[in-house]
Simulated scan of single mutants.
Amino acid sequence: MRRLAAVAILVLATLTACSDDKPPTPSTVVWTKVDTPAEPVTLTGHGDQLLIGLRHRGAKVVPELLLQDSTGKRTQIAVKPNPVSPYAFEAIWYSIAYDGKQLLALGGAAGGAHSNTRWTVWSGTPQTGLIERPQNFFTFGGETAGDLYSAVITPSGRALLGSWGGVVTGNDAMVWLPKGETWTRQDPTKTALQSTPNLLVGPGFGTTLGESIVIVGSQVRLAPNVVAQEAAVWRSTNLNQGWTRTPLPEPGNRSQANTASCAKDCVISGYVDGQLAIWQLDASGTAKRLHGVPSIPVGDKDKLPPPIRDGDKIVQIVAQDNKVKVLTGQGDHWTVQDSQGPDGQVTDAVLMPDHKLYLIAGTSLWQTTLS
Rank of each mutant, 00 (worst) to 15 (best):
G170R: 12
G170M: 13
M174Y: 07
V175Y: 14
L177W: 03
L177G: 15
L177Q: 10
P178N: 12
G180Y: 06
E181Y: 06
E181S: 12
T182D: 11
T184A: 11
Q186P: 15
Q186W: 00
Q186Y: 00
D187C: 05
D187M: 12
P188K: 14
P188W: 09
P188S: 11
T189Q: 12
K190D: 15
K190P: 15
L193F: 03
Q194E: 13
S195L: 05
S195Q: 05
T196I: 07
P197Q: 07
L199F: 05
V201M: 09
G204I: 08
F205E: 08
G206M: 04
G206T: 05
T207H: 08
T208A: 07
T208I: 02
L209V: 02
L209M: 11
L209T: 04
L209R: 10
L209P: 08
S212C: 08
S212M: 09
I213E: 15
I215R: 07
Q219L: 11
V220L: 08
V220G: 07
R221W: 00
R221V: 07
L222I: 00
L222K: 14
L222C: 13
A223K: 15
P224T: 01
P224E: 11
V226P: 06
V226L: 12
V226Y: 07
V227F: 13
Q229C: 10
E230Q: 12
E230W: 09
V233R: 00
V233Y: 02
V233Q: 01
V233P: 02
T237R: 14
N238Q: 13
N240I: 00
N240Y: 04
W243Q: 08
T244P: 15
R245G: 09
R245N: 10
P247N: 08
P251G: 14
P251N: 15
G252Y: 07
N253T: 09
R254Y: 04
R254S: 10
Q256R: 08
Q256Y: 06
Q256P: 15
N258P: 03
T259F: 01
S261I: 06
C262G: 14
C262N: 10
C262A: 08
C262I: 04
A263W: 04
D265K: 14
D265Q: 13
C266I: 04
C266Q: 06
S269L: 01
Y271K: 06
V272P: 15
Q275R: 14
Q275H: 10
L276F: 02
L276M: 05
L276K: 04
A277Y: 01
A277V: 03
I278D: 01
Q280N: 06
Q280E: 13
L281C: 03
L281I: 02
D282Y: 01
A283K: 10
G285S: 06
A287N: 03
A287S: 11
K288S: 09
K288T: 10
R289L: 02
R289D: 01
H291T: 11
G292M: 03
V293K: 06
V293N: 03
V293F: 05
S295N: 10
K303L: 03
L304G: 00
L304M: 03
L304I: 01
P306S: 07
P307E: 06
I308E: 05
